[in-house]
Design a protein around this nucleic acid. Structure first.
Lengths: 188, 188
DNA sequence: ACCTGAACACCGTTCAAGT
DNA sequence: ACCTGAACACCGTTCAAGT
């Protein structure tokens, strides 16, 4: 009957977050996670359905932080600056916390409506900027283009496809500027 | 002393390829792979260093096929058409054999020079087209931009980020055209 | 020379038993 | 109510033993 709780749901998610940040998504074992909050692995199942759900919760937390950060940094910015700022936020994240960036987009395709809402909120500032840049008619396509480019460039860069060439950040913004120009005056 | 070989290196790689095509990279266990070529799992270590090497060999094979396919389909095409053709080849691959597309870019960052050479050969037609489109000075940046966009869009689409909206392929080519236009006349 | 069974360390997960 | 040890099925990998 005593049942003293040694940890809490948010403690576990925080611990999972820091393990992922250090060791990546493959480094998070239930044994290591349980150990870092002072319990045994089976006890995790009293709070979570399993490993997948824990990872999903970390993704949700990180995406929420990211969306808030993006919203704050792009507030009242002209659309071109907003797009460049968002691109910079993702770029810096991929350099400063690469394993978190990877984890954000890996595994667990979006099924829960909760996940979708958070992801949409992170994309909203891009959509708004694209509408201002390219017009409401093509805003969605333009937003997808910018999003795809940012994610694709960062992913390939982290994978080493572009080598560790010094001009890589220059290429990143060169491409971004080309896209901003391209969507502002789409091909006839 | 007899030592009758029940299988061969290329048999194993072929079997691995079809398992990955069906079940994805997580579905390929050494037990299942060994079973499908009629041996036991430990015997695989007589031919390969381990699971990682087998997967790398499949990636290498698939990339070689892809590079050959791209080279053949873009032969003597004007640069804009070459870029659109390459984009279409990747898009179709992601629809027809999604697990192979995923496997192509997942895990095992490029360390061996052999891997790099194959990947470079797959990118060469994009580079050539971009040089014709944007000039030698920015050709590398332009090629990276196109590559990043294609990969990013397809990855996010497969992950479900863009929903299964019917206009998604339209967005894909809208963005591609915007990029072609943008890199042909980069922002001043 | 190639194959095999047995074993090892390590996963995620379940469950009966403790308090 | 939360925690635990023991167990299960399943991984990749190693190795001594077969032919």
């Amino acid at each position: 009957m005593p049942a003293i709780a040694k940890t809490s749901e948010s403690d576990v998610i925080d611990a999972a977050r820091s393990i992922i940040a250090d060791c990546g998504i493959d480094g998070i074992t239930l044994h290591a996670l349980a150990d870092s909050v002072g319990i045994k692995a089976p006890s995790l199942y009293k709070r979570f359905a399993g490993r997948e759900e824990i990872i999903r919760r970390v993704q949700l937390t990180e995406f929420t932080d990211l969306a808030r950060n993006i919203a704050a940094e792009t507030l009242d910015l002209p659309p071109q600056d907003a797009v460049r700022t968002i691109a910079r936020i993702y770029w810096n994240l991929s350099l400063e916390r690469p394993r978190i960036y990877e984890a954000l987009f890996s595994g667990a395709s979006i099924t829960e409506p909760e996940d979708l809402a958070v992801r949409t909120s992170a994309m909203l500032p891009i959509f708004d900027a694209c509408r201002a840049l390219a017009g409401a008619g093509v805003a969605l396509g333009a937003a997808r283009t910018v999003t795809a480019y940012i994610h694709g460039f960062i992913t390939m860069n982290m994978a080493g496809v572009f080598q560790q060439s010094p001009g890589i950040e220059g290429s990143y913004y060169f491409g971004l500027n080309a896209i901003i120009k391209g969507i502002a005056s789409p091909a006839e």
